[in-house]
């Protein structure tokens, strides 16, 4: 249970990281929090000869909400993002999902961008990035590019990143007015990989303008999944929900659940059969949609961020 021999490089700037990657990219790996990589090294599932430890490099720890975007630098830990009030008011689904990422001690060290680069279908944050319509910003000595999750995620644990490329930040869009978002997951033990997890963004016509007591109507719904799809695939469910008043959500529940169960593609293993995971996904999705429909304020714009939106988050 010890890694094979390797050389650790500790660059101090982004430029130094990129230089090192251009030389060692093919024989090495970037390490930030290492909470997924070190177990892989300890079990010798991988044996890179070089590790580029980016944790002491300057300029990668930005965490800020700029306009409608939550910008998360490569060194921002899960824990810091989970506790950031500006992030939670811009889009509460991040903290909602982050609370399901392993344990607090792992979240203290693990980074959200690292989790996205690892591209584990059992990971929460790659899916959250896809569900929110976010992207990553990537640099190498050859230049810079932005990648949507659609192009980033090629397969389970596989991205389209070249060996010399570094994700410098991930950008999660804020919720728009009238949107509500949430995440839920079931695991066999606290902190384990989820047997199944669901994230949802529900759109309504309640855009904050005084509606004189009129009830809000659902205009759209999309969902993403943990552990039951190979890559963070998102399903658009507008056709099943658009035009339904929020209080009538129970009338569309069955359609939404059966569409989701048809969309996902779970595998079976020692922990749960494929059928059981499919069943669980439906149950979680139904509960989550009901919860979002009842929620008075499901997140929303940064402008409304001062309200007590965290009540459900803790």
């Amino acid at each position: 249970m010890k890694p094979s021999p390797l050389r650790i490089h500790r660059p101090k700037t982004i430029e130094e990281i990129l230089e090192l990657l251009s030389v060692h990219g093919t024989s090495g790996k970037i390490i930030a929090g290492g909470q997924s990589l070190v177990p892989v090294l300890n079990m010798r599932l991988a044996a890179p000869r070089n590790l580029i430890d980016i944790t002491s490099a300057a300029g990668l720890d930005e965490l800020e909400v700029v306009g409608d975007e939550i910008r998360v630098g490569a060194l921002v830990s899960h824990r810091r993002l989970e506790r950031d009030p500006a992030t939670t008011s811009a889009n509460p689904i991040l903290a909602d999902a982050l609370r399901h990422v392993a344990h607090p001690a792992i979240r203290n060290r693990g980074t959200t961008v690292g989790s996205i680069a690892h591209a584990d279908p059992n990971g929460e944050m790659p899916m959250i990035l896809a569900l929110t319509g976010g992207w990553v910003e990537v640099r190498s000595v050859r230049g810079a590019r932005s990648l949507t999750t659609e192009s980033l995620n090629v397969g389970p644990l596989e991205t389209c990143l070249e060996p010399d490329e570094l994700i410098t930040s991930a950008v999660f869009p804020a919720l728009r007015p009238g949107q509500r978002a949430g995440f839920d997951e079931l695991a066999r033990r606290s902190g384990d990989y989820g047997l199944a997890g669901v994230g949802m963004i529900l759109s309504t016509d309640d855009n904050g303008v005084d509606r004189a007591g009129a009830e809000a109507t659902i205009t759209g719904l999309k969902a993403g999944f943990v552990s039951v799809t190979d890559i963070p695939d998102i399903i658009e469910l507008d056709e099943f929900v658009a035009g339904t008043p929020l209080s009538q959500v129970s009338t569309i529940l069955d359609d939404v659940i059966s569409a989701i169960k048809g969309f996902i593609d779970p595998g079976g293993d020692i922990h749960a059969s494929a059928d059981y995971r499919r069943h669980l996904t439906g149950v979680i999705a139904g509960r989550l949609l009901k919860r979002l429909s009842r929620q008075r304020d499901g997140g929303g714009s940064p402008a409304g961020g001062s309200e007590m939106r965290q009540e459900g988050a803790r």
Binding site: M1, Q35, V38, P39, N42, L51, R79, A102, A105, I106
Partner: peptide, 23 residues
């Protein structure tokens, strides 16, 4: 030695972390 059991937990700048998952 893969972050599950928690026996090796130490504090890094006051925050609990797994000492088996950091060089």
């Amino acid at each position: 030695e893969h972050g599950v059991c928690g026996a090796c937990t130490v504090q890094l700048d006051g925050d609990p972390i797994r000492s088996c998952l950091i060089f």
